[in-house]
């Protein structure tokens, strides 16, 4: 983000930086990935068992996948903003609040990237296989 970004955006960024960061927020993206993974299996299994065929218009599936991606993106964006909190150069290994924030934020950002790709990789087979066998 540039320095001359609109004021509203900056204040949003500042509000985001003020959010509490814990190990629980760190595992939000991989948890969403895991739940989406489970959701994929359940959706295909239930569809095949109840309908006997792969649904042609997988609205529930697309909606679930988009929701998962949106949560991961939001989590990643928050982490990205938090990771840019001004402070010393890396490594962020001091016992200070800012270093703790930036360490957790960077880790969350990387996990969000991984989880985003993972959700796409999980969704692709469900959308492209289209066969219950």
């Amino acid at each position: 983000m540039k320095r001359d970004a609109p004021r509203g955006r900056q204040s949003l960024g500042e509000r985001v930086r003020g959010l509490r960061v814990t190990l629980w927020t760190l595992i939000v993206p991989p948890t969403v990935w895991a739940m989406h993974f489970l959701f994929c299996y359940l959706w295909v299994a239930v569809s095949c068992a109840k309908l006997g065929a792969f649904p042609r218009f997988p609205i529930a599936f697309v909606a679930g996948t988009l929701a998962a991606l949106a949560i991961i993106l939001a989590s990643g964006w928050i982490a990205w903003v938090q990771s840019r909190t001004p402070g010393d150069d890396p490594p962020h290994d001091e016992g200070t609040d800012i270093d703790r924030l930036r360490f957790l934020a960077t880790a969350t950002l990387l996990l969000a990237g991984l989880s985003f790709v993972a959700v796409l990789f999980t969704a692709a087979p469900a959308l492209l296989l289209t066969d219950c066998r």
Binding site: L120, A124, P125, R133
Partner: peptide, 22 residues
């Protein structure tokens, strides 16, 4: 380490998945 492998793997997945269709 991130973008190129992800794109290559996704492309491979998209190309090969239809072939797994009976």
């Amino acid at each position: 380490g991130g973008i190129v492998p992800s794109v290559v793997l996704l492309a491979l997945l998209v190309v090969t998945l239809p072939a797994m269709r009976p």
